[in-house]
Design a protein around this nucleic acid. Structure first.
Length: 428
RNA sequence: GCGGCCGUGGCGAAGUGGUUAACGCACCGGAUUGUGGCUCCGGCACGCGUGGGUUCGAUCCCCACCGGUCGCCCCA
C-alpha cells in the first residue's frame, strides 16, 4: 500500500463503472433527441483561455486552477470548466461559419479544481455539459434548461429545485453595478474581507456571500431585477414564459449571480432537496454568455450552456434511492479438469466468444468444486463441463444452473446449441 | 487556506499501558477422490497510518507529519 491516488481523485471501480455507463448512455440518448452533437476538446488549454474566458476575479482563476509550465515554457492549465474550451474551439475551428446554426454541442469531460475535497467535491470531477452558440432566442435558454431537467427527470429524480435569475445585458449590469457600489461603500468596513475586495472587482458577487448574508445592507441592496432595461426585462419574461409552456417549475432568486464573470441575462442552478445529500446541493449550473465568443477572439455570437456534475448526479440518485438496473449475470462458464480438457476449453471458449456468446473460464487452477463455486458467484446461466470422460466421448456436459438440468452435447455442435439457447431464435 | 472527527487483516468492526490482538463477512482447504447455492470442521494480522517522545513496557498516553472524512469559503 505504498501509493495512493492523489487527494481529491478517485478510482471508479468496475462495480461503479456500470452506473457511470448507464448514466452516460442515458444522457447521450437524450442529447440525441434534442439534436445536440458531441464535442471533445483537450484536457488542458493555454492558461489565458481560462483567465480571459472565466474571468480574473473568479475563485476558479484566483485559487482553483491546476496551472503549470510545460517543457516549452508555456503556461498550461488543466480545464476547470467546459465553456471556455468549447468557445475557444468554436472560434478556432470557425464553427460560426457552419450552415447549421445555432451550433448545439454537448460534452463529457473531466474538470480539475484545486480545492479541499468534501462530499460532492473533488479535485478531478466529471461533468456533462452543453453549449448552444449562435442564437439569442430565449427559446434556446428554455431548451437548454429543459434538457438539463429532462436528464434528471428521466433518471427518476424528483427532489429538485430549479432556480433562475436574470443578470441583464451589459447596460443593465453596469447600472446595477454602480448602484451596488453606491449602496455598499458606506458599509465597506462592516463587510467580510472577501466582500471588501468584491466591492471593487465584482460587487455583484457580494449578494452571493454567505458570511454577510445577515448584514442589514444585504436586505436593502439594489436588485438586478430592478435595473434590467426594457430589452433585458423582455428577454427574461420570454424565458420564463417558455418554461411555463413546457410545464417546468422554477423559482426566481434575485441573489443568484453565479461565480463566473461571463454570464449575462439568464442564469440558473438546479439543486437537490433530497435528505442526506450533504452540504453542497448544486447539481448543475449555467447561464447565458453573450460576449464571450468575442472575448476569445471570435465574432459576435451569443451563447448559453450549463455544466452538470456527474458525481453529484450519482449522489442524488443514491439519496433518492433510485436503483440503477444492472445485469451482472454471465452467459456461460466453462469448467475444465485435466490437461487435455484445459486445452479444449481454451479453444472452445475462444470459439464461443467469436460467435457472440459471453463466456469465461477458470484461471486459478481450481478443482472442479471451486470452479463450480466461481460459476455460481458469477451467476452463470450455463456451465460447460469438460473432463476426461467428455473428451473420450467427444461431447461436453451442458448444465443449466438455475434448474440443475444437465445434458451431453457433441463437441462439434456445442457452439450452435449454445447460440440457440442464449441468442434465441432458430440460428441453427 | 481554516476547523471538527477518524486511521486495527481483502472489507466491516471490538479491544487493553504488560506473556497468544475478539467477532462478522469474504476467501482458501476438508467433510463430499468429477458437480454450485445449505450445513459442519479447520485455516487466514511477527501486526494495530508514519516518525519521534513518555514508560521497565505501548495498538492503546503525548507531539509532529501523512492520509481519509465532514464542514467553512466557493462551486459541478
Amino acid at each position: 500500500m505504498s501509493y495512493k491516488a492523489p487527494r481529491g481523485t478517485a478510482d471508479i471501480l468496475p462495480q461503479d463503472a456500470n452506473k457511470w455507463q448507464f448514466v452516460e448512455a442515458k444522457i447521450k440518448e437524450i442529447c440525441n433527441r434534442y439534436h445536440f452533437h458531441e464535442i471533445r476538446t483537450p484536457l488542458f488549454e493555454h492558461t489565458e483561455v481560462f483567465q480571459r474566458g472565466v474571468g480574473d476575479s473568479t475563485d476558479i482563476v484566483q485559487k482553483e486552477m491546476y496551472t503549470f509550465e510545460d517543457r516549452g515554457g508555456r503556461s498550461i492549465t488543466l480545464r476547470p470548466e467546459g465553456t471556455a474550451s468549447v468557445v475557444r474551439s468554436f472560434v478556432e475551428n470557425k464553427l460560426y461559419g457552419s450552415v447549421n446554426q445555432p451550433v448545439k454541442l454537448y460534452y463529457f469531460a473531466q474538470m480539475f479544481r484545486y480545492e479541499r475535497p468534501q462530499k460532492g467535491r473533488m479535485r478531478q470531477l466529471n461533468q456533462f455539459g452543453v453549449e448552444v452558440l449562435g442564437s439569442a432566442d430565449p427559446a434556446v435558454d428554455a431548451e437548454v434548461i429543459d434538457l438539463a431537467m429532462t436528464c434528471y427527470r428521466e433518471m427518476g429524480l424528483t427532489s429538485l429545485k430549479l432556480v433562475i435569475n436574470s443578470l441583464g445585458d451589459k447596460e443593465s449590469r453596469e447600472n446595477h453595478r454602480q448602484a451596488l457600489i453606491d449602496h455598499f461603500t458606506p458599509h465597506k468596513n462592516e463587510l467580510c474581507g472577501d466582500c471588501q475586495m468584491r466591492l471593487e472587482k465584482n460587487p455583484l458577487r457580494i449578494l452571493d456571500c454567505k458570511k454577510d448574508r445577515e448584514h442589514p445592507a444585504m436586505k436593502t441592496a439594489p436588485s438586478i431585477l430592478d435595473y434590467l432595461n426594457d430589452e433585458s426585462q423582455c428577454y427574461f419574461e420570454k424565458v420564463k414564459e417558455y418554461l411555463t409552456l413546457m410545464g417546468i417549475e422554477y423559482h426566481v432568486d434575485k441573489n443568484l449571480v453565479r461565480g463566473l464573470d461571463y454570464y449575462n441575462h439568464t442564469a440558473f442552478e438546479i439543486m437537490s432537496e433530497a435528505d442526506g445529500f450533504g452540504a453542497i446541493t448544486t447539481l448543475a449550473g449555467g447561464g447565458r454568455y453573450n460576449g464571450l465568443v468575442e472575448e476569445l477572439g471570435g465574432p459576435n455570437a451569443p451563447g448559453i450552456g450549463f455544466g452538470m456534475g456527474l458525481e453529484r448526479l450519482l449522489m442524488a440518485l443514491e439519496a433518492e434511492q433510485r436503483e440503477i438496473p444492472v445485469d451482472s449475470s454471465l452467459d456461460c462458464y466453462c469448467i475444465a479438469v485435466g490437461e487435455q480438457a484445459e486445452k479444449e476449453a481454451v479453444r472452445l471458449v475462444h470459439n464461443l466468444r467469436n460467435h457472440g456468446i459471453q463466456v469465461d473460464k477458470d484461471y486459478q487452477s481450481k478443482k472442479m468444486k471451486g470452479q463450480f463455486k466461481a460459476a455460481d458467484r458469477y451467476e452463470a446461466k450455463y456451465v460447460l463441463i469438460l473432463g476426461e470422460d467428455e473428451l473420450n466421448q467427444q461431447h461436453i456436459a451442458v448444465r443449466e444452473m438455475k434448474t440443475g438440468n444437465q445434458e451431453n452435447i457433441p463437441l462439434s455442435e456445442v457452439v450452435d446449441v449454445m447460440k440457440a439457447k442464449l441468442l434465441g431464435g432458430n440460428q441453427l
